[in-house]
Design a binder for these strands. Structure first.
Lengths: 185, 185
DNA sequence: GTATACATGTAAACGGTTACATGATTCT
DNA sequence: AGAATCATGTAACCGTTTACATGTATAC
């Protein structure tokens, strides 16, 4: 499990409330780790009990109070220990690929519906790529990598991974569409 | 959930026992859907109860008996229904990316251990790419896609996705290694 | 004699998803 | 008036992972 660790990294980059973390997991961190607010609140409570994170209750005007969490020393130590453990290559779950192979066993009409679905996926990947590229121009305008801090460089290289993943996926979805059209005719 | 559907596709491509399915999930299907034998046996029993698959007990010489499953009409219908439902874009879990961002908050020595780990991942992705390419030459030697059956074409386009994913990942891991080395100096 | 392949299972623990729940404030 | 944002939770369910369990046959 790495949700604890992803939360720790996020809190080290910037302390925040459970709600703020949930938003980050919807946006930037969600690129490589997803979590809903329910999961986040549950794990935050456990991490607080274990002393991995510190809480500060912050009263706000015209908004509900919030609990701002930050990484504590035992949390940093836990993260350091985890960093030294080997991780296994991720297990892949790609429903669309299952569907593409399933299409061979359905009526030809099913290809039409699959084509629409692949097109939908293509659009959503194109939109995500555009968002990544906008974020890259905003957060990493500097051409010279030596001018950035290690933290920025590491964030940037992870973002570049997201960008290349989306580019590859777009090209592959075009290949899939061409193949489906060829079969449909 | 798509484990049922992945199993159905696999049984449509070729009937087989739970054990054989587990091996396929370790090899080709594992490219886009993973499952252990425990999961597979449990789901097979449920699918049999629901009439999605048919079983034939096969006695073997010098080997344990096995139950050979094949897709039944209700299973095909269930697969067809699922094909017409939209799937959500997959949720990503990429521990290595979490580690890379975590490295910014550890001692410089941690970079060394991370570099070794990234190199290990690089090797395993390179080996997987080599296996995919060998499989491609073996299973799809034909240059002209029109010469293949729709089933083969669809299997091939999914395999091409795996190949492009591995190529992209290798290039990214090289980028990660270059970045880590730059920071370490 | 040891390891690997074949073949099928049970049980417990854990993590993730979905549904439900509440309540204030701001924007259109 | 209604929708969206901020803010935090509970509970039930489901799927996945890990550990345990058993037994035969073949290959080295």
């Amino acid at each position: 499990m790495a949700l604890e660790h992803a939360i720790l990294v996020s809190l080290l980059e910037q302390p925040g409330s459970g709600y703020e973390l949930a938003r980050r997991f919807d946006r930037s961190i969600g690129r490589f780790w997803t979590a809903t607010h329910q999961q986040i609140y549950r794990v935050l409570r456990r991490m607080e009990t274990d002393g991995w994170i510190a809480v500060e209750e912050v009263a706000q005007d015209s908004r509900p109070d919030k609990k701002v969490y930050s990484a504590a020393a035992p949390g940093r130590a836990a993260l350091a220990g985890w960093l030294r453990e080997p991780v296994e290559p991720e297990t892949v779950r790609h429903e669309l690929a299952v569907k593409i192979r399933a299409a061979a066993f359905d009526e030809p009409a099913a290809l039409k519906s699959l084509i629409s679905e692949v097109e939908r996926h293509r659009e959503s990947h194109a939109a995500l790529l555009a968002r990544y590229l906008t974020g890259e121009r905003r957060d990493f305008p500097d051409r010279d990598p030596a001018a950035s801090s290690p933290q920025q460089e590491l964030q940037h290289v992870v973002l570049r991974g997201g960008i290349e993943y989306e580019r590859m996926t777009l090209a592959w979805l075009d290949d899939v569409l061409a193949t489906l059209h060829r079969i449909a005719n």
